[in-house]
């Protein structure tokens, strides 16, 4: 799809003040900065070269040079200032600050002042998009993890693993941090499970930085242990709709009859399934395999016995 004249106009208007303040960039660098192709930037520059103020004599045209492949502006004419920010641009920056604010309390006063500055430009008391503080758990380690990602070192974590209910010590080559559903997750190569894993940062108990040692910690995709996946069939009643939201990644198929969904999922950790189903009660039933079905029943019984013995 070819670009509209308006998009080009907007970009050309922004190019001149940007080049004025950032002279000497290559056409490729400008293209990257403006999310377009070097060809488009070259055409923009060729066009700007013949634009100017009424009269259009050399003295009234925009004066710019880009023959050498590096761009500079000698006379921007009346385009000496950047355009004002759009609502979207302001809002996106404000929301970006909100994210920083939630994660880096040490910068809170600075960020808050800056945020107020932008909000006052926006001239809108209530922002159409708002975020609640992202997360207040697991934030303690974030700075440290970020440093390790940047320095390409390794992390050692004592982690309260999901299903095992015990601390495991793992060495991770961290790759990235991300936010999802209000929690901060760390993903990276785990040398313990020999695979790419994701960890909740709020479940990290102790964290330390270790130097990479190729002989000891050698990440190799071929050494990845295949996960043992088994197929499980569940019956999910409508009252457990959150089950679908939380587990969309492992659901194979859903078949609905009379409001009850028959769901096939791929499970690589039966322990996870048992613990999850126990928490959901009768809203989710395991239909197959039989072994998991009876394991769940036994577990429910032994938990129920706790309450029976105290009541009697």
């Amino acid at each position: 799809m070819s670009e509209s004249a308006l998009d080009r106009t907007a970009r050309a208007l922004d190019l001149i003040p940007f080049i004025s303040e950032n002279p000497g960039l290559s056409i490729e660098e400008l293209a990257a900065e403006f999310h377009t192709t070097p060809k488009a930037i070259t055409k923009d520059l060729e066009l700007l070269f013949v634009c100017g103020l009424p009269g259009y004599s050399p003295l009234e045209l925009i004066d710019l040079a880009f023959d050498s492949g590096y761009v500079s502006v000698t006379d921007p004419q009346s385009l000496d200032r950047p355009r004002k920010m759009s609502h979207r641009e302001l809002l996106a920056l404000i929301l970006g600050l909100d994210v920083l604010l939630g994660l880096h309390v040490e910068f809170a006063p600075e960020i808050t002042r800056l945020r107020e500055k932008l909000v006052s430009v926006l001239k809108q008391a209530e922002l159409p998009i708002q975020i609640e503080q992202i997360s207040d758990s697991g934030v303690a380690f974030i700075d440290q993890i970020e440093e390790v990602i940047a320095s390409r070192k390794l992390l050692q974590l004592d982690y309260q693993g999901g299903t095992k209910d015990q601390l495991t010590r793992r060495v991770i080559r961290p790759d990235q941090l991300s936010h999802l559903n209000g929690l901060v997750y760390l993903s990276g190569w785990c040398f313990l499970s020999r695979g790419y894993r994701t960890f909740r940062t709020d479940r990290i108990v102790i964290l330390s930085v270790i130097e990479p040692d190729e002989t000891k910690y050698h990440a190799d995709d071929t050494s990845q242990q295949p996960d043992l996946i088994s197929e499980v069939t569940l019956e999910v009643t409508p009252s457990a709709k959150s089950f679908f939201e939380e587990n969309s990644g492992i659901i194979d198929s859903v078949e609905v009859t009379d409001c009850v969904a028959r769901v096939r999922i791929q499970v690589n950790d039966p322990e996870w399934l048992l613990r999850t189903c126990l928490g959901l009660g009768a809203k989710v039933r395991i239909l197959a395999p039989e072994s998991l079905k009876s394991a769940l029943r036994e577990r429910a019984q032994s938990t129920l016995d706790l309450y029976r013995s105290t009541n009697s």
């Binding site: 922004d14 940007f18 950047p82 641009e89 809002l91 996106a92 929301l95 970006g96 920083l100």
Partner: peptide, 24 residues
């Protein structure tokens, strides 16, 4: 702040806003 969002619409808007600030 401009790199905080991975969502295209937010990150693009933030980047172009930032570019204007960098033209000051």
């Amino acid at each position: 702040a401009a790199t905080s969002w991975r969502t295209a619409s937010l990150s693009e808007s933030a980047a172009s806003g930032l570019r204007k600030l960098r033209s000051l």
